[in-house]
Structure formats: C-alpha cells, structure tokens
Design a protein around this nucleic acid. Structure first.
Length: 508
RNA sequence: GGCCCGUUCGUCUAGGGGUUAGGACGCAGGAUUUUCAUUCCUGUAACACGGGUUCGAUUCCCGUACGGGCUACCA
C-alpha cells in the first residue's frame, strides 16, 4: 500500500515555524516512499477561525516549496479537504457510533460542567461520573427522545470503557501504554454540529487513506482516544501508524517556542510575515528577514533530526534520500537563530549570482535603487562572502547604489595628512585616465604608481577605500572601483579628498 | 495534582556495553587577505544524579531530579 500522509494545520493565525517543520517531515516521508502529501485544513473551531490564515498557510508552503499533491487548492479525489465542508460526514459517523453503543448523547450545559469542575477539583467526565450527568446513558430513554425531538442542544461523547490497556507503537518513541480508566469521555461532536479534532481527524484519516500520522508531540496523550476511536469504528486493520515529533523550544529559558518569542528575542519564528489586527498580533517572517527557502528548510530539517555522519548542508533531494523517522530525536530541540543565519550565509555563498541578483532585485527597488540585473549580479559577487541575510546586500553595500552617507572619520584622521595631497591628486589623475578600467589592471597600475611615488600601500590603499566606500569594511578596493565605473570612481576620489581635508581641519 | 514523553559540549547532534565520546553552530587564538568578510588550522566544552545487571556502563533496567506536553463543546 502506498504511503499517504497529511499536514493538517488549523487556520487560527500564522503558521508557526514548527508547523513548517512538521510539514517538511511529512513531505520528506511521502517523497521518499513515492507517496502522497496531503494538505487538510482543520477549521472546525468557528470561534478561533482567522480570515487569511488559510491563504497564509498555502503561501508559506509554496514559499518553501513543499507543494501538496492533494488538498485545498491542489486537487485530489478524496475531498473536500477543508473540514468545515465535511460537516455532514462527521454527523453521520458520530451518530453511527451512538447507534453502536460506542458513544452517547450528552445534554450538559457548559455551565453545568463548570459547576461540576468547581465541585470536584479533578472532575473528569468518565464512567465514574457520567451517571450523575445528563446524557443518554443516565437519562431514561423517553426523556432522551423527547429532548432530542425538542431540539435541545447536545454533544456526542465517546464512551470509554474502563479497565483496558491501550497500546500504541510510536515510530519515534516505541511502545506507549495508557490505561483507559485514566481517559475521559471526549466530546466528538459539538453543539454547533462541528466535530472536535479527535473525531474529524480519525474520520478523515480513514476516509483519505492516511497511512502515517506524523504530528507534534502535543498529540501523544490524546492518541489513546484516537486508537479507541479506530476500534469503535472497526477500522483497526487500516489504522495509520503514529510518529510524534519533538517540540521546538525557546532560544533561552523554558518551554516551547511561541509566537511571542519573536518579539522577545527580535527573531522571526514564522515563515512569512503576518499582519494581524494589532501591532502586537503582527510578526516578522523568515522570508522578510532575508532567508532563502532552501536554507530555511535545511535549518528546520536538522532541528530534531539528523541522518548520522558529518554532513550539514542538504539539498531538498538529499533530505528526501536521507530522511527516516527512526533518526528523529526524542527530546525537544532549542531554536537556534545563530545556526539559522549560518545556513543562510552558506546558501548565499554558493548560490548562482544571477539567481541571487533576482532575489535582491525587489529589495533594491524598495530602496529606490534603479539597478538592472547585470549590475546587481556584480554587486552580489562583491558582497556574497560578507552577508548573512538578503537585505545585507543593499544595506551593508548601499554605497554601491548611492552616494556615501557616512565616512569613517576616525580612520581618515589616522590616514590622511595634507602632505599626501599632491600624490593623491596625481593618483586621481592616473585612475581617471587608466587605460583599462578593470580590477586587475587597475590594481597593477595603482600599485606601480604607489611604488613610483615612494609610498607604501598601507598609506594609500585605505584612503582609496575610504574615498570609494566611506568605510573600511567592504569588498576589494579595485573590484569596487570597477563596479562603480570610471566616472563615479573618479568623482568619489575627488569628493573624498575634499572631505578628508575638511575632516582634518575640523579636528585641528 | 493526575497521565504521558524526554535528558550526550552553551546550542543542534553522531555514537553506542570496552571509543583519545565524533561533527556542526557559537566563542577564543592563529594563518591567508595591507579593510571587512570568506577560507584554512588550532583550541574551548558534554554522556543529569543514585542504585542495580555486568569482568566492564555514557550505552541495558529501576528509581530520583530536572525539563516538556496533555489534562476544553481549541487544535
């Protein structure tokens, strides 16, 4: 039987970066086995539904390149893949369970349940307490029929029989056992007719032929209920195998990574930026921070999984080849932004210049720079060894696009003196009239000039750099000059010298 | 509180009854580059604790501690 896995997010807001990792592992598993990767939208909570969240999820998956084979917006024969559109299905199956005696109607109001919890600290709706509450197991059959006929609101609860062991063989954690006496009678169908996660997930996984459920560790405790549900429906022979992933933890401190950590540590914890109703509900994303999709995926893949060996850089194809559930760590993985940046830096270094140029084109345009891809390609080759995220190109290397905004006065004071002026003027002339305005010949010519003048490279080259870029940080001087061009370089050298003199004068 | 899961350098991890416990990020130092960065080299640093089992445990078992998750008509 071919592998079918699903990524099943709930559209309650931006998709957490941990969700992207879950999607990635599902995707890798499916691809490796020649299986099918399905996107299912679990929008059964009408109260928490957030408009735009579903579109965000799809856009995020597209950005990292994890395209579903089936799902909302991706076709497939076993839809609809949006749970809110499957309401009648859940109604039917929930009532089937009641008919089989595996579930029951319950009329308890939220207030009544709240009162029960108040009365008893560890109140649980189960075999011990259900006879004290209002449901079809405690009430006379006629009363139940009357209330149902009268349209009284009701939920359907799973009837958990105590005294049995529920065994799970988790693909990551091994054998896990739960005592059914510890389990509560979970609500399956809510008053509004929508299913809870528990019902919807079992019904859909069954109907959609899911073979492996790869999800976050937070689902491990309720997996016992899920197994009971498969048993109740009589679907145990096709029950999927479970794999519960370790959580992603905060960069520092305790607990799992939350959306608030983004603001707290000044780092993105979402794939894409999210514009919420308020500033407090809006978050930056990896894409906007200047991360490459491939680097983001590589980083996430290794957060909780490693195939063994010393390899760190994996293409998506290599990840597909190397992936295995057995090599997923059991313990939670701390979110390490420094490592994420390192991956990005590596990917930028090895990326094709033309592709990189295309990637930074929008960033340049946003800054108002009129730069064609040929020029951007040159910029990229000068800067790619010294940036970590995409915006660094236009921020750190701004002087390649526009006039110098700030000079390193301290360095100027250290290097410039009025006595250098005649030589510098002659140098400007030599540069202006250079026979070939390309990095290598220019360098050769200038160094010869320096030698002829009886100067040392260390006396002149830093000044050249300062005049060209304003800062001591940056690419090779002559490569910069070549990219800037003859006219602009000469102009900067003249302006630079003027500035040097003013700078010295101001300090005197 | 109850139930469940986990614990190898600061971080991500490899490994596995007998190893100098390996790699990567970070950090520190050095080389190259008359800038910055890249690259290269070197260094730093770990098996949570206590009992077993065993000739021998970091590795297997049991406890403890610590961490995490769940405990809704949320997913």
């Amino acid at each position: 039987m071919s592998v079918r896995v699903r990524f099943a997010p709930s559209p309650t807001g931006a998709l957490h970066i941990g969700g992207v990792r879950t999607a990635l592992y599902n995707y890798l598993f499916a691809r490796q086995h020649g299986g099918t990767f399905i996107l299912r939208i679990e929008d059964t909570d009408q109260n928490r539904y957030v408009p735009g969240a579903e579109a965000y999820i799809v856009e995020a998956l597209k950005w990292v390149g994890l395209l579903p084979d089936e799902g909302v917006g991706f076709g497939g024969e076993l839809g609809p893949y949006r749970q809110s559109e499957r309401k009648p299905v859940y109604h039917q199956y929930a009532h089937e369970l009641v008919a089989k005696g595996k579930a029951y109607f319950a009329f308890d109001t939220p207030e009544a349940l709240e009162a029960a919890r108040q009365a008893e600290e560890n109140f649980t709706y189960n075999a011990h307490t259900r006879h004290l509450l209002s449901n079809s197991l405690s009430l006379p059959a006629e009363t139940v029929q009357q209330r149902l006929a009268a349209g009284d609101p009701y939920v359907i609860r799973l009837r958990v029989e105590p005294g049995q062991d529920v065994h799970i063989q988790d693909l990551i954690r091994g054998a896990v056992v739960f005592q059914s006496s510890e389990l509560d009678d979970k609500v399956l169908l809510k008053t509004d007719g929508m299913p809870t996660y528990h019902l919807a997930n079992i019904v859909d996984d069954h109907l959609m032929g899911i073979t492996h459920v790869i999800r976050g560790e937070e689902w491990l405790p309720s997996t016992a209920h899920h197994v009971l549900l498969y048993q109740a429906f009589g679907w145990t022979d096709t029950m999927p195998q479970f794999a519960h992933l370790p959580l992603i933890l905060k960069p520092v401190g305790n607990g799992k990574l939350s959306k608030r950590d983004g603001a707290k540590f000044g780092i993105p914890v979402f794939p894409l930026a999210w514009a919420g109703e308020t500033a407090e509900d809006s978050f930056p994303g990896f894409r906007e921070a200047g991360f490459l999709p491939a680097a983001t995926l590589n980083f996430l893949a290794l957060l909780g999984w490693h195939p063994g060996g010393d390899q760190e850089i994996f293409s998506l194809d290599e990840l597909i080849q190397a992936f295995s559930l057995e090599h997923i760590s059991k313990g939670g993985a701390r979110f390490d932004y420094e490592k994420a940046k390192w991956f990005n830096q590596r990917y930028i270094q090895t990326m094709d210049p033309a592709a990189l140029a295309a990637a930074i084109q929008p960033l340049a345009a946003a800054k108002g720079y009129q730069a064609d891809t040929a020029f951007l390609s040159q910029v990229v080759q000068l800067m790619k060894e010294r940036v970590t995220v995409l915006p660094d190109f236009v921020e750190q290397g701004y002087y390649l696009f526009e006039a110098i905004k700030l000079y390193d006065d301290e360095m100027i004071a250290k290097k410039w003196s009025a006595g250098l002026q005649p030589a510098f003027e002659a140098l400007i002339g030599a540069v202006e009239n250079a026979p070939v305005f390309e990095a290598a010949p220019l360098e050769e010519q200038v160094k010869q000039f320096i030698q002829d003048q009886g100067l040392k490279p260390g006396e002149v080259l830093p000044l050249l750099r300062l005049a060209l870029a304003g800062t001591m940080k940056g690419p090779a001087v002559f490569e910069m000059a070549a990219v800037l061009g003859r006219a602009e370089s000469t102009r900067r050298l003249r302006e630079g010298m003027d500035y040097f003199n003013r700078c010295i004068a101001a300090n005197a």
